[in-house]
């Protein structure tokens, strides 16, 4: 395998950057996303009626509350991933990723 093959979403970049430089960032991304996937599936945490909020049983408002929470987790993961990607790309002598210029058109 060629040297530039080692860059992956879980492993750190090689070459220009010190090894392990973005590992922590990618682990953080993984943990944030894992929380967002696992917690909504733990039905025993929220299969109750009380306490109600604005008339919504706990079961329902808890799941609604998870939507912005997971959204924030995902957005945080996005920001960390963007920075880590930029570092990984510099380490491989690539220019800034296209998305850094903004995606609206």
């Amino acid at each position: 395998m060629a040297p530039e093959d080692t860059r992956s979403d879980t492993a750190a970049g090689h070459g220009g950057a010190p090894p392990g430089r973005t590992t922590g960032a990618w682990v953080t991304v993984g943990v944030l996303l894992a929380v967002g996937i696992v917690v909504p599936l733990l039905v025993f945490l929220y299969d109750q009626e009380k306490p109600t909020l604005w008339g919504f049983p706990f079961y329902y408002w808890f799941q609604f509350a998870l939507i912005p929470v997971v959204s924030v987790l995902t957005y945080t993961a996005f920001r960390i991933a963007e920075r880590a990607t930029a570092r990984d790309r510099r380490a491989h002598g690539l220019g800034p990723a296209a998305g850094r210029k903004g995606g609206f058109q």
Partner: peptide
């Protein structure tokens, strides 16, 4: 258009989930 659009959307799309619920 690029990779970032996908990841940014992953954070923006849940606005639809609220409506769905």
């Amino acid at each position: 258009k690029n990779r970032s659009v996908i990841r940014r959307n992953a954070a923006l799309l849940p606005a639809y989930s609220f409506l769905l619920g």
